[in-house]
Simulated assay, not measured.
Amino acid sequence: MSATPAVPVAWPAGKRAAACFTFDLDAESAVLNIDVAHADRMSVMSHQAYGPLVGVPRLLALLARHDVRSTFFVPGYTAVRYPDVVRAIVDGGHEVAHHGYLHEVLTGMTAEQEGLVLDRGTEVLAALTGQVPVGFRAPMWELNWHSPELLAERGFLYDTSLMDADHPYELRVGATGSSLVEIPVQWALDDWEQYCYLPEISGSGLIESPRKAAEIWRLEFEGLRAVGGCFVLTNHPFLSGRPSRAAALEELVEHVVSCSDVWVAPLRDIALYIRGLGLSPRSVERPDPADF
């Protein structure tokens, strides 16, 4: 098998690169999926609730100040628990996309099990927002090899969970000739690794300075800008919604928006543009055990 890389794309209006600020509104679901017994830990639950209660309003105001429309990935359970917060996201002009129901890590699920998760999350988000979500981000960015086909069968336009490119591409799905737009991500562009610490649950105890996190993200933005790529930053409101972190994030948003050669848009808009280019789909191939 000879793998081929994703090709650079021509961005609209002569732009050099694209960028999207995305937010995973995990709230309690990220912890409850690990163990529902964590529901008994009042302090842990309050740590997660900070996201929808305080972080989201702060981040929505930040985005509004810079006229940035974003994409929020929302687990179905978060939407059930905080419907007014999700409505505020929609009212702010932002996209609401799919992030499981209880932030289920899909690894090892059968296609049937995974399909139930997708359908349950979609049902909740569609009922609340009035729109069926067209984008998907796998919790922990962990797709199964059968995941793309399940998404395509359900009419999703794009996924943003894979990490093999700097540029969006059409991901070939099965043998049917269908495809999903894939908008790549990477762990360096995620605030979880910089900020998250919950005793016995997540993190090493090292919590980085917002200055360091913002420096990493700005350097990567400039790198992707130079190669004409797509910068996708992933933040969690329970982490980056804290005051000092939101302030550092705002400096980055201000810088990105100031770059006249960068198109800043929600992932849905980026995916629709990529779909309109008519790119030839490419495959991501599973390693063959016979070659091990």
Score class of each variant (00 low, 15 high):
residue 256 V to M: 06
residue 62 L to S: 13
residue 172 R to L: 03
residue 43 S to Y: 10
residue 154 R to A: 06
residue 124 V to D: 01
residue 70 S to Y: 04
residue 37 A to Y: 13
residue 175 A to N: 13
residue 143 L to D: 14
residue 252 L to A: 13
residue 283 S to Q: 12
residue 254 E to L: 05
residue 151 L to I: 06
residue 273 Y to C: 04
residue 77 Y to R: 12
residue 97 A to M: 02
residue 231 F to N: 04
residue 200 E to P: 08
residue 274 I to V: 15
residue 216 I to E: 02
residue 77 Y to V: 05
residue 196 C to S: 15
residue 210 P to E: 07
residue 272 L to T: 15
residue 250 E to S: 04
residue 144 N to K: 11
residue 8 P to W: 02
residue 197 Y to V: 00
residue 57 P to H: 08
residue 273 Y to R: 08
residue 91 D to W: 02
residue 88 A to L: 10
residue 45 M to N: 10
residue 223 G to M: 06
residue 81 R to T: 14
residue 55 G to M: 03
residue 256 V to N: 02
residue 8 P to Y: 03
residue 93 G to K: 01
residue 23 F to C: 09
residue 215 E to Y: 12
residue 276 G to H: 12
residue 88 A to F: 03
residue 85 V to F: 05
residue 56 V to H: 00
residue 122 T to G: 09
residue 257 V to E: 09
residue 272 L to E: 15
residue 88 A to Q: 07
residue 167 H to M: 10
residue 70 S to C: 03
residue 94 H to K: 06
residue 168 P to M: 09
residue 26 D to W: 01
residue 76 G to F: 09
residue 251 E to Q: 11
residue 205 G to P: 08
residue 231 F to E: 05
residue 278 G to Y: 14
residue 216 I to R: 15
residue 106 L to N: 02
residue 44 V to E: 13
residue 200 E to L: 14
residue 152 A to K: 00
residue 52 P to H: 09
residue 205 G to H: 12
residue 8 P to E: 07
residue 223 G to D: 14
residue 287 P to E: 13
residue 180 L to R: 09
residue 78 T to F: 06
residue 104 E to C: 09
residue 271 A to Y: 02
residue 235 N to K: 07
residue 252 L to R: 06
residue 273 Y to I: 00
residue 292 F to A: 11
residue 112 E to L: 13
residue 224 L to S: 00
residue 74 V to A: 05
residue 200 E to W: 10
residue 32 L to P: 00
residue 286 R to H: 01
residue 241 G to D: 11
residue 283 S to K: 14
residue 128 L to S: 04
residue 47 H to W: 14
residue 210 P to H: 11
residue 3 A to S: 15
residue 237 P to I: 07
residue 284 V to M: 10
residue 188 A to M: 14
residue 165 A to P: 05
residue 280 S to M: 10
residue 91 D to R: 11
residue 105 V to A: 05
residue 39 A to R: 14
residue 232 V to S: 05
residue 1 M to Y: 08
residue 161 S to P: 15
residue 123 E to Y: 07
residue 62 L to R: 09
residue 289 P to A: 08
residue 36 V to T: 07
residue 217 W to H: 02
residue 34 I to M: 12
residue 217 W to R: 03
residue 158 Y to H: 14
residue 206 L to M: 11
residue 34 I to E: 05
residue 112 E to C: 10
residue 179 S to I: 06
residue 3 A to P: 08
residue 235 N to G: 14
residue 75 P to W: 11
residue 280 S to P: 13
residue 142 E to T: 11
residue 155 G to Q: 01
residue 98 H to T: 03
residue 162 L to K: 04
residue 220 E to W: 09
residue 191 D to W: 12
residue 37 A to H: 15
residue 188 A to W: 05
residue 192 W to V: 15
residue 73 F to R: 11
residue 261 D to R: 07
residue 59 L to C: 02
residue 197 Y to S: 06
residue 85 V to L: 01
residue 184 P to M: 00
residue 30 A to L: 06
residue 150 L to I: 06
residue 75 P to F: 13
